[in-house]
């Protein structure tokens, strides 16, 4: 479904990604873990097309998409739930969802939005209020709902659990599994390595802009350094 081959991302002198290759198969959940500044967000943004790659190739559904603009990538079924949610706080909850469906036309858009309101009753209660009044958890639900109404084939999530209470985090991961069971492929970047490895099938460890290790989640969980660094299971 998604194939990233040997990409580089540079911000001026900063070499944020070096020769990174990852792939996400049809209806797979894949996770990318790594410490702050490892380049996880840069990787997702490069795939979404909001950050330029200086080398390498990205293909989606067997088509090379390097030269596609970010909006065209959304249209082709690739959406990103960005780090920090980035919902539009000056607009209503419903307007945020309408924006999520911007690349779609036709009467089904309304149904998609209603189905989000059916699923998230908190959002339905506030559909005509400004998104700024939502709590952190509700904002994350809105960010994911907004990505869902775009009807993606592959949804990328950048640290969706950040700042959420444990209960909300487990609800979030249930939702991610449910999306997956509906046939949406998932690429998830997480600080919560434990939960990410429990939810995903395969994963990558990103370190200083390079893939240090890849494998099934069991292989990664067995990795001694990873366990020390992220799972807090040594000492």
């Amino acid at each position: 479904m998604l194939n990233v081959e040997n990409i580089d991302v540079r911000y001026g002198a900063i070499h944020a990604l070096k020769n990174v290759s990852i792939s996400v198969g049809e209806s797979e959940i894949v996770t990318v873990v790594g410490s702050n500044g490892a380049g996880k967000s840069s990787l997702l943004r490069a795939i979404a097309g909001t950050t330029k790659v200086s080398k390498g190739s990205i293909s989606f559904k067997k088509q090379r998409i390097n030269s596609l603009s970010a909006p065209s990538r959304v249209k082709s079924g690739l959406t990103l739930v960005p780090e920090g949610r980035q919902i539009f706080v000056s607009m209503t909850v419903e307007e945020n969802l309408l924006l999520g469906a911007h690349s779609r036309t036709g009467s089904e858009v309304k149904n998609s939005i209603e189905s989000i309101f059916d699923r998230f009753s908190n959002l339905a209660e506030r559909r005509n209020q400004l998104a700024s009044v939502l709590s952190g958890g509700e904002q994350q639900m809105l960010a994911i709902g907004r990505a869902m109404v775009a009807k993606p084939r592959l949804m990328m999530l950048d640290e969706p659990s950040l700042g959420l209470s444990p209960i909300l985090v487990s609800q979030l991961f249930e939702l991610i599994k449910e999306l997956h069971s509906q046939g949406i492929s998932i690429l998830i970047v997480e600080q919560n390595t434990k939960l990410a490895l429990k939810t995903a099938q395969r994963g990558y460890i990103l370190e200083l802009g390079s893939v240090r290790q890849e494998g099934t989640v069991d292989e990664l969980a067995a990795d001694k350094i990873l366990a020390e660094a992220y799972l807090g299971e040594s000492n």
Binding site: S69, P71, F88, S90, M91, L99, R146
Partner: peptide, 25 residues
């Protein structure tokens, strides 16, 4: 309108607007 909504999205956060599939250019 849809165009107006897109314009307001660009006004608030052009980066996020792009991620919604809004062609800012």
């Amino acid at each position: 309108t849809k165009v107006g909504r897109a314009l307001r999205a660009i006004a608030e956060n052009p980066d996020a607007a792009t991620m919604m599939g809004i062609d800012v250019d």
